[in-house]
Amino acid sequence: MAAESRPDPGTALVTGASRGIGRAVAQAFARRGDRVAVHYGRDRGAAERTLASLDGSGHVVVGGDLGDPAGAQTVVDAAIEGLGSISVLVNNAAVAPSAGNAHRVDDVSFAAWQRAWSDMVAVNLLGASNVTMLVAQHMIARGSGGAIVNVGSRGAFRGEPDHPAYAATKAALHAFGQSMALVLAPHGISVTSVAPGMIATERQASKLDGVAGDGIRGQSPFARVGTPEEVADAVAYLTSPGAVWASGTVLDLNGASYFR
């Protein structure tokens, strides 16, 4: 799906834009003429590589731990200072599932369970809600509308037995987005979510190249997994002027691998 061009260049904050989906979203925005604030949590070098890959000029890098409310405030303030304004927000940053933070309820210590839940709730849900609140108030004060997209997950619907906190935070993020869609519509701000299935990012490379790869690809009748660019195209559409009427939606991007 191709995004409509904007009458004027937009200004976008993309959290977790150092690599993967976030990088692809930043690139899609830059191609359509937006200026982008590329957020990173820890890896500034990767964020700088994203910055170097963007078309156009006027982009900035902003760093901060979104799991800390003060960090969220710092990120938003730096993005506004660097871009002059924010007209688009993409909440992509997340503590993603990994072997190191697995917390299957029948095979984990209470300490590991607490750690996984605390880390994922802090960034995936509270971090996104804090950034949204700050950016939404900025958009309201500007009086020029805007668009917010939350990057959720297929796991919010089908469950994640090895990472229940991840599924729970993504389900909560979808619900949070719909609450924001209701309250922000009178201000001309649309709020949507995307729910990707497995995506071929650097983080997933070892899993897809391993013995389980064929089974993962076989979950979709297309016999493959999605690409970051496919998610980015959807996000670009949802933040385009013609997508305002989609506000409140959660768009599944899983190659028909799961229906709800």
Rank of each mutant, 00 (worst) to 15 (best):
P97G: 05
A99W: 15
N101G: 08
N101V: 08
N101Q: 08
N101M: 06
N101L: 09
V105G: 15
D106F: 09
D107W: 15
D107E: 15
S109I: 06
S109A: 11
A111T: 15
W113E: 10
R115H: 13
R115S: 13
A116Y: 09
W117D: 07
S118A: 14
S118Q: 12
D119E: 15
D119K: 10
M120R: 05
M120K: 07
V121D: 10
V121H: 13
A122L: 05
A122D: 13
V123F: 01
N124L: 06
A128E: 10
S129H: 15
N130C: 05
V131W: 02
V135M: 06
Q137K: 14
Q137I: 09
Q137S: 13
Q137P: 03
M139G: 01
M139N: 01
M139D: 05
M139S: 00
I140Y: 00
I140L: 03
A141K: 10
A141R: 12
G143N: 06
V149I: 10
N150I: 07
V151T: 07
G152C: 14
G152P: 04
S153V: 01
R154D: 15
R154Q: 15
G155L: 12
G155N: 11
G155T: 13
A156E: 12
A156V: 05
R158P: 03
G159K: 09
E160R: 07
P161E: 15
D162G: 07
D162E: 15
A165K: 01
Y166S: 04
A167D: 12
A167E: 10
A168G: 09
T169V: 06
K170F: 03
K170A: 03
A171R: 08
A171V: 08
A171Y: 04
A172M: 07
A172L: 06
H174W: 11
H174D: 12
A175F: 10
A175R: 13
A175L: 03
F176H: 07
Q178P: 03
S179E: 13
S179A: 09
S179T: 13
M180W: 10
M180Q: 11
A181C: 01
V183F: 01
V183A: 04
L184R: 06
L184T: 04
L184N: 04
P186K: 08
P186H: 11
P186F: 11
G188T: 03
G188C: 06
G188V: 01
G188N: 10
I189E: 03
S190I: 02
S193H: 04
V194M: 02
V194S: 01
A195V: 05
A195W: 00
P196N: 03
P196A: 04
M198H: 13
I199H: 00
A200W: 00
T201Q: 01
T201L: 00
Q204L: 14
Q204T: 14
A205L: 13
S206N: 14
L208W: 09
A212E: 14
D214Q: 14
R217Q: 11
G218R: 07
G218W: 08
Q219C: 04
S220C: 02
S220M: 02
S220P: 05
S220A: 04
F222Y: 13
A223V: 09
R224L: 03
R224Q: 14
T227H: 04
E229Y: 11
E229R: 06
E230W: 00
E230F: 00
E230I: 01
E230C: 02
A232W: 00
A232F: 01
A234N: 06
A234W: 03
V235E: 00
A236W: 03
A236Y: 02
Y237M: 10
L238W: 04
L238I: 10
S240F: 10
G242L: 08
